[in-house]
Amino acid sequence: MKRLLAAALLCCLASPAFAWGVLGHRLVADLANDELTPAARRAVDTLLAGEKDPTLAGVATWADELRANDPDLGKRSSKWHYADIAENGCADYEPPRDCPNGDCVIEAIRTQTAILADRSQSLDARRQALKFVVHFIGDVHQPLHAGFARDKGGNTVQVRIPTADGGDKGGNLHSLWDSGLIDRAGLDEPAYHARLRALPLVVDMPAHALPPDSPAWAQQSCRIATRPGLYPPGADIDAAYVATWTPLVDEQLRRAGTHLAQVLNAALAR
């Protein structure tokens, strides 16, 4: 199992549209699952019935797999994974400037949550919306998915990524934040889940509050992406970088899990 997971993580490093990689997205979903209300859990079970893995974690990477499994939808939704807002100094969200035509992760979260919450929508439409919401709330909490357009969220910044066995491998800054820092811990999914569960619970969204506060989440991620030192001075990522930034990765994963649970609990309240 560990070997298969490691292979999946390496595949994710090569793709610029992924955020958090397989393990990171599954962890966000696992954390959210812990905090679902009974009503939300029943709705999730109904919506995901028939899926190969009918759990939030089981569909957490579905939106990244669309390019291979449904190229048309994958192309239409490709801009929904990120919002390049760092050039504007992480300023207050202005849709015409920051999300033209609604094609960014901020509006995608709101649009898909509205479909999920709408009982007049078909089961298929709501199932698809649930899978998008699970994924995009993970995406918006990856800081470089709210970063600079000029370097494609760190994709053009080449670095050497340290590995759990003490070696390193080539990659870019985006992939370092997607998977490199997570993989560096050398933990499997249950162990990493337990590590994140030990962090303080984030509660910053009132119960039944919709639409989701995705602009604030993107803005927070942007502020992390623009902190001094996040862009390393050279290509080699050293132990000090790992020690400094891995806690931020963990905090964002933990925060994403709580925010996802809050959104699902509100959207599926009845």
Rank of each mutant, 00 (worst) to 15 (best):
T226G: 03
R41G: 06
A225E: 11
L27Q: 10
D53G: 01
G50M: 06
P71V: 06
L66C: 05
G24R: 04
S175L: 08
T163K: 00
S214F: 07
K131T: 13
C99Y: 12
A114M: 07
Q220L: 14
R227L: 15
L23D: 09
Q262S: 04
G138T: 08
W62P: 00
L196E: 07
V203K: 05
A225R: 03
A218K: 04
H141C: 07
A218S: 14
K169C: 04
L210H: 06
V105I: 14
L268D: 15
L48R: 01
R42I: 06
L27R: 02
L31G: 06
A207G: 07
H81C: 02
D178Y: 08
P38M: 04
S221I: 13
N155S: 12
R127N: 04
K131R: 12
D183E: 13
A256T: 12
L253R: 04
D72E: 14
D250Y: 08
P232R: 04
S120V: 05
R223S: 08
L173T: 09
L48Q: 02
Y231P: 02
R110H: 05
R254E: 10
L9I: 11
I85F: 06
D213H: 13
D64G: 07
A149I: 10
A40W: 06
P71I: 02
P143C: 05
P143D: 11
V202N: 05
D204T: 07
R67P: 01
A198E: 14
V44E: 04
I224E: 15
I85G: 00
P96C: 06
T226K: 00
R67M: 12
H145C: 08
N172R: 00
H25S: 15
R254N: 10
H208P: 05
A68T: 09
A49T: 14
D98S: 02
P162Q: 03
T55M: 01
T244W: 02
P190V: 03
N155M: 10
P71H: 00
D92E: 13
G50P: 13
G153D: 11
R197A: 10
E251L: 09
